[in-house]
Design a protein around this nucleic acid. Structure first.
Lengths: 209, 209
DNA sequence: GTCTATAGCGGGATAGAC
DNA sequence: GTCTATCCCGCTATAGAC
């Protein structure tokens, strides 16, 4: 299953890019410890030695992939709230866009949770970019404004953001468990998540009214 | 950091139990691939060979720990809704209890997500117990009743349950990322989660009204 | 740049003394 | 039952031919 084709900038078609595509697939699925250089090489239809020729070590290759995944993941969260429209529109658009992205890339949030949580050092390394974008501040201002207009009750920005993300992401990363629990098959579960785009926006809007 | 002392039934104080306690700590923190038998032995202050004497293989030891973790985790989710009180009381009690448990055992949900998601076979193996308890059915009936009484709007059981769990669990498993994102230190973040016991119950109750 | 072959080691597992 | 010593495989990494 191809998870995602968005691979860095620099990479021209050729072995270097093939490696990145294969590595991303394998690391996403298996994590650092579970991934094997041999499997990446096989998937890229190349020799194992070439991986080291281009990227020196497993660790170095991994870091490239982590950066790629983080760069792709975080911008999606942001920049939805600075468009036009009512608060309800923005929230509706957020869930639609974000859950849509997660459905296309289910392994991405799981990877970030599982891997970054166990190697918090890496966070600091790759997190400066998104951090600086000032989303928190921007969101705070939006909330203030909506409260003034009476479109919502006052809610701490942290709570607003946490709930927004929790409701979107958790059903994706816990899919196997929740599937089992709710006795759904794969198709049914994905339909459920698809409905959540709408349904969760409604849920959220009611909660902040 | 001792995560949790609740270790199976059978285990008397002695090497067998020491191994389980150490193994649980290491597997919780590192996962199967990341865990080292040597580290478990060191932590249990025993020889590596003894691990194999008692549990034959890393895999076998791991299965014992997984079962222990699952057995301890799932009952907490259940059995909160069959007590007395109004719907609001039940929801408030749920978040209080569940988030409290998660704060005491932050690695447990992360472990279940990270490990079980990558070895779905294991789910089937250990999931029969909780599955059979009929929580879904029970919750459906509660919702029906509350809708009849006008205490809440009609909501699919799946949605109700997913949102309940998402709002509780996600902020715990994504702690390192959210901490960074919200620019909180460890203490501040835990306080935030503690407030969520109350605050999230309120959020949820508003959403289903 | 791309391959084959192999070094080197970490780590799970076992043999065997006590 | 508990230890030390060791086996042996799998995997990262490198040497070196082409």
């Amino acid at each position: 299953m191809v998870q995602n084709k968005k691979i860095p900038d620099s990479a021209q078609p050729g072995p270097e890019k093939q490696i990145l595509i294969a590595a991303k697939e394998v690391f996403l699925e298996k994590g650092f410890d579970g991934a094997r250089m041999q499997e990446i090489a096989d998937k890229a239809a190349l020799n194992k030695a070439l991986l080291h020729y281009y990227y020196r070590s497993k660790e170095k290759l991994y870091r490239v992939i982590v950066k790629d995944i983080m760069d792709q993941f975080f911008p999606v969260v942001f920049g939805v709230f600075d468009e036009t429209g009512s608060l309800s529109d923005k929230i509706t658009r957020f869930f639609d866009l974000y859950i849509g992205f997660l459905l296309d890339n289910p392994l991405v949030p799981q990877f970030i949770i599982a891997e970054i949580v166990r190697k918090p050092e890496m966070l600091m390394e790759f997190f400066s970019g998104p951090m600086e974008s000032g989303v928190i501040l921007q969101l705070s201002e939006l909330i203030d404004e909506c409260v003034r207009k009476g479109e919502m009750r006052p809610i701490p920005t942290e709570e607003f953001l946490m709930n927004l993300i929790s409701l979107s992401v958790f059903p994706i990363i816990a899919k196997p468990i929740l599937m089992n629990f709710l006795e759904k098959d794969d198709k049914e579960y994905n339909e459920l998540i698809n409905e959540r785009k709408r349904v969760t926006a409604d849920f959220f809007i009611r909660a902040i009214k």
